[in-house]
Design a binder for these strands. Structure first.
Length: 584
DNA sequence: TGCACCAGCGCC
DNA sequence: AAACGGCGCTGATGCA
């Protein structure tokens, strides 16, 4: 492998000649970080930028030639950029040099989209080995990139990544193109890389959007967070001491709690295969009328709130919290958020998320999106009709199952139907339905009623019945099944529950990602940006003065995505301009 | 003491 | 044969 290490500006500028004819380039960066565990995207510095085409590789030392970044901006924002885990590089390029590449192909994302096994690794070295049979030595990855004179080994290592990229890119692209997708790819990403796969084009366009979201961070009312932490902390400590003094049991020891509840109180709790260990979770809620159980659940949820407040505080930087997303966090395409997780914030803590003076939040979420997707996906005529007539589906289901007038359905009945709708589209059993209705919706139904509702549901929604039957039949015969979302995201499943879940949940993530990509395009350079994403919800922060306009752009983006994926069922969503996340 | 596992619980 | 799925964080537990 040949490469050139460049430390002089005139040499750097001259090297650009080599890339004149290229539509896309292979890139990587090495960053001098203070701590590999806790990377600081705002203060850590890019040391090297490696750029190559199919014949040349240049390694630019940005400590020596910082002024070269102006030329790089021109280059990297106008050509296609191929790299591995580009969200990382894009974030540093943006904070260090104001460079924001948007026509990208990410080999990690490509590999994840192609994967048929969720245990598969997607590191560059894993890909190199899998696709080209070469072992890639990553021992230099965590070497000190800030030292004055980089070693020959470090430079070699840096250049090597680019060589690997150009070997694996065509393989990944061609594999993606081989998958039949219902939506034809269009636009710059498609033309630049010759990428036809619709899902892949959306995911690639999403990469820089997600980098932007992470860099914005979510605004937090710092004083409120600190006050709340103080209060919850003292309350909790008192309650904990109180609990232990009263019952003599550690509420967080599963063994001791099980022992206590069964022997002293005579409760019947299920046991897991681990013998003495017992799985309490939902079973405990059966005994919610016992004071001890109520106290136990209460202290546990207090602890949960305290933990979350601590977690938020630990990640607070100048009034904002910067999470990290895994773009494909689940095989369905859903994202995952970590350090901290901003996708499991409870209702009562959302009040903490509040923009500074002069800014507003816009909170938008799709309504009953999984049900709408499921209706479209299985082509259930009854459900599609109900949705297209603008019916409230939970009320509608209640009326069909109970044989009552649509307008006569009570709040409780609607609540029960909610449990039925969400549970039964995925084939929940009558027994589990009973538990689920109680634990998640606070509705008590007998096993007998659960059985009746179960069978009535499938009489009414025949499309769901035949879908479930088809899937069961197929799996019985083949023991695995390839399923697709409405955008064409492909998944290989082995279990019935996966086979019915994945296409629906997966289409949900297709939809959200498309909406985000549209929003990024439509908002142009207005002072607005997304600050959090929660599966079917988009949270935007913007200047107060343009809030109305941004709200409309967001609505348009969500509607446009909906119209592309759902042809028979209308999408609906709520959008609101608010002072805090809690206000919705 | 450190590590892997999981139970429990928050969100969609 | 029966089955709703996905995630991350904390801390108990069991083992080396």
């Amino acid at each position: 492998m040949e490469f050139r290490y460049i430390t002089q500006i005139d040499e750097a500028v001259k090297s650009l000649e080599a890339f004149k004819e290229d539509k896309y380039l292979f890139i990587d960066t090495e960053v001098a970080v203070k701590s590999f565990e806790d990377i600081d995207f705002f203060n850590d510095k890019i040391r090297l930028i490696q750029i190559g085409n199919y014949s040349k590789i240049f390694v630019y030392d940005m400590f020596r030639i910082p002024q070269f970044s102006e030329h790089l901006k021109e280059l990297l924002e106008n050509k296609g950029v191929i790299g591995h885990n580009l969200k990382f590089d894009i974030k540093f390029l943006k904070t260090n040099f104001g460079i924001f590449p948007q026509i990208v192909f990410d080999t990690m994302i490509a590999s994840q989209l192609l994967s048929e096994d969720s245990r598969e690794k997607h590191s560059l070295s894993a890909l190199s080995y899998r696709l080209t049979d070469n072992h890639l030595d990553k021992s230099q990855q965590r070497s000190p990139w800030g030292i004055k004179n980089l070693t020959e080994e470090q430079l070699r290592y840096a250049a090597k990544d680019v060589q690997v990229l150009r070997e694996i890119f065509p393989v990944l692209r061609d594999e993606l193109n081989r998958i039949e997708t219902p939506h034809k790819a269009t636009g710059k990403i498609h033309e630049t890389f010759g990428l036809d796969n619709g899902v892949a084009v959306v995911e690639m366009a999403f990469v820089p959007q997600l980098a932007d979201i992470e860099l914005r961070g979510m605004p937090v009312d710092e004083k409120l967070l600190k006050d709340m932490l103080q209060k919850v902390s003292t309350d909790y400590q008192r309650e904990y001491i109180d609990f232990v003094r009263r019952y003599g049991v550690d509420p967080f020891s599963p063994q001791k709690v099980t022992n206590w509840l069964t022997s002293k109180l005579g409760l019947k709790l299920p046991t897991t295969q681990k013998g003495s260990l017992s799985s309490q979770d939902s079973a405990l809620r059966r005994y919610i009328d016992r004071e001890e159980v109520r106290k136990l659940l209460h202290i546990r949820s207090e602890k949960k709130i305290l933990d979350k407040l601590k977690e938020l505080k630990a990640h607070l930087i100048n009034g904002r919290i910067y999470t990290q997303f895994k773009q494909i966090g689940a095989p369905t395409g859903r994202m995952a958020s970590m350090r901290p997780n901003l996708q499991n914030i409870t209702r009562d803590l959302r009040v903490l998320f509040r923009p500074p003076e002069g800014k507003k939040l816009i909170v938008a979420d799709y309504s009953q999106i999984e049900l709408r997707i499921a209706a479209e996906y299985v082509n259930d005529e009854t459900m599609i009709k109900a949705f297209s007539e603008g019916k409230d589906l939970h009320r509608f289901t209640a009326s069909l199952i109970l044989g009552k007038e649509y307008d006569q359905i009570t709040k409780d009945e609607r609540q029960m139907a909610k449990a039925i709708n969400f549970g039964l589209i995925y084939g929940i059993s009558p027994r589990s339905l009973m538990e689920y209705a109680r634990n998640s919706y606070g509705v008590d139904i007998s096993l007998k009623d659960a059985q009746i509702f179960h069978s009535r549901f499938f009489e009414v929604y025949k499309g769901f019945k035949s879908w479930h039957d088809r899937v069961k039949e197929y799996l019985k015969e083949h023991n695995k099944m390839v399923v697709y979302t409405l955008l064409g995201r492909r998944m290989v499943v082995r279990r019935f529950t996966e086979a019915v879940n994945f296409p629906v949940q997966g289409t949900g993530s297709d939809l959200l990602k498309m909406a985000v990509v549209f929003f990024g395009k439509l908002k142009e350079d207005r002072d607005a940006g997304i600050v959090n994403l929660v599966h079917d919800e988009i949270i935007v922060e913007c200047s107060e003065s343009i809030a109305d306009e941004i709200r409309d752009i967001l609505s348009e983006s969500m509607l446009r995505a909906g119209k592309i994926l759902l042809k028979k069922v209308p999408v609906e969503f709520e959008v609101e301009i608010v002072e805090s996340w809690a206000e919705k």
